[in-house]
Simulated scan of single mutants.
Amino acid sequence: MRSMLRWIAQGVALAGLLVVLGFGAEPASAQVVPFRVTGAGVADFIPLVPGQASPHDAIGTATHLGRYEAEGLVRLDGFTGPTTGTFSSAEPVAFTAANGDVLRFDYQGNVNLFGAGDGLFITVWIAEFTPASGSTGRFERVVDGSFIMTAISAPFSLDAPFLVGYSWSGSGWIEFDRGR
């Protein structure tokens, strides 16, 4: 009887070890990887009216993209105070890698307007970017993700907020479907 109990105890211990080690588990179907991006670009103008959208572009480097070119459309959604507001992508921003693969993101966030002296202003934009449909090449397998972007504009005049330069950076993660 004692030897039978010992065998049962050893069997339970072995089964527990196999569970801890993951034997018998299905392989992971997704891979989460860090994502970092930096760059600079130009917005055609700073949207100053709710619902107004402005084209913007950027060049820079990003994890999994390498050197990229990006194009998007930023929309002012509304004001939350005299110098603060919310914004979002009027259409997904498309990051194009050197080989032509495209990674698309939607974004939404908050913008703050600060005086820079001599009648000029700067804006600080903080947004969460999440993957959007329509990515191509190796990015067709991106199923989830999030990164926080901070962008700072060059000084501009409210009388002529046109062709405003900006720099930006962000970090977070993206998730690739590994398939079966």
Rank of each mutant, 00 (worst) to 15 (best):
A70R: 05
A70M: 09
A70H: 03
L73R: 11
L76D: 08
L76E: 07
D77N: 13
D77Q: 06
G78A: 02
F79S: 02
T80W: 02
P82E: 07
T83D: 13
T84H: 06
T84L: 10
T84Y: 10
T86P: 02
E91N: 02
F95N: 07
A97S: 12
A98Q: 09
N99A: 13
G100P: 08
L103H: 05
Q108V: 09
Q108K: 15
G109Q: 05
N110V: 10
V111E: 03
N112V: 14
L113R: 07
G115L: 07
D118P: 01
D118E: 09
G119W: 00
G119S: 00
L120V: 00
I122C: 01
I122T: 14
T123D: 09
V124R: 14
F129I: 05
T130C: 07
A132H: 04
S133I: 07
S133K: 11
G134L: 13
T136W: 09
T136Y: 08
E140R: 12
R141C: 10
V142I: 15
S146Y: 08
S146P: 04
F147A: 04
I148P: 01
A151T: 01
I152L: 11
A154R: 13
P155K: 15
A160I: 02
P161L: 01
Y166T: 03
W168G: 05
S169C: 07
S169T: 13
G170Q: 13
S171W: 03
G172D: 15
I174N: 11
